[in-house]
Simulated assay, not measured.
Amino acid sequence: MNAITRLVTALLIAAGIAIAGFAVSQGLERFRMSDRSVTVKGLAEKDVESDFAVWTLSFRRAGNDFGGVQQALAGDRDKVAAFLKERGFTEAEVEAKPLQVQDLFTREYAQGNQPFRFNGTG
């Protein structure tokens, strides 16, 4: 090989190494910069005065007699409603959900050592 061919080959190899080094450095810089960005999408805070609130009250009863548990829950519901009326709540402001009594022995994975058979919520 003559000197010119060696020089051209050396320059091409040097240029290839330089371009590869530049590409690697740009990739590393983009990789590092991606950790420093924050994206915010449209949820802004704003103070607003309101005269509406939802206040969920619940109560529970348990026992071995279905009717007894249901009557106790109805009595508790009446006591809660009376308490709220005494405090100034109107009928339109109070919404009573239906009472629910569950037989714990009929559940799919029920255990026989339950102290009470029926569990009720209101």
Rank of each mutant, 00 (worst) to 15 (best):
A53T: 07
T5D: 15
K85F: 08
V24M: 10
F31S: 15
Q70F: 03
E86K: 15
F83H: 11
S58M: 06
A72N: 03
F31V: 13
G120L: 04
V8C: 06
F22K: 10
V69D: 00
T90Q: 07
G42C: 03
K41P: 03
P115K: 10
N64H: 02
A20F: 09
L43Q: 08
D78L: 06
A15V: 09
E45P: 05
N113M: 07
A96W: 02
Q100T: 14
S50E: 03
A10C: 08
A18E: 06
T5K: 13
F83D: 12
E93H: 03
A82Y: 11
A74T: 11
E49G: 07
G42L: 08
Q70M: 08
A14D: 00
G16S: 11
G120Q: 02
V101H: 02
K85T: 12
T39N: 13
V24P: 01
R30G: 14
F118I: 03
F116K: 09
T39A: 14
F105V: 04
L12R: 08
S25A: 15
A110I: 00
Q70C: 01
Q111K: 15
I19C: 10
R61G: 05
F118Y: 14
Q100H: 06
R30Q: 15
A92S: 14
K41T: 15
N113Q: 10
Q111W: 00
K46C: 03
Q70W: 01
T39Q: 13
S34P: 05
Q71M: 07
A82F: 07
G27E: 11
I13G: 05
L57D: 02
N64C: 01
A10R: 11
A81E: 11
G27Q: 13
T39G: 08
R77A: 11
N113A: 08
V54L: 12
A3T: 14
A92Y: 02
E49M: 06
R117S: 03
N64F: 00
A74G: 06
Q26W: 14
F66T: 00
D78P: 01
F22H: 11
T106C: 00
V94Y: 01
V94A: 03
V94D: 01
G68A: 11
F118M: 03
E29M: 15
G21P: 02
N119M: 15
E95N: 13
A15F: 14
N113V: 07
A82L: 06
D51Y: 09
I13C: 09
V48Q: 06
A15P: 01
E86V: 09
G75C: 01
L99Y: 03
A96I: 12
A110L: 01
G16I: 05
N2H: 05
A3C: 06
P115G: 04
S34K: 12
F105D: 02
I19V: 15
G63P: 02
F22L: 15
E49K: 12
Q114G: 04
L99V: 09
D35T: 12
L57F: 05
N2L: 00
A44L: 11
S34A: 14
Y109G: 08
L11G: 07
T56G: 07
R60Y: 07
N2K: 09
R60P: 00
N113S: 11
N113R: 08
I4Y: 14
I17P: 02
P98E: 06
G16N: 05
Q71E: 11
D76S: 12
D78K: 09
G21W: 09
F66K: 06
A62K: 08
M33H: 14
G122M: 04
S50G: 04
R36I: 12
S34E: 13
E91W: 02
Q26S: 10
F52R: 08
R107N: 09
G67H: 05
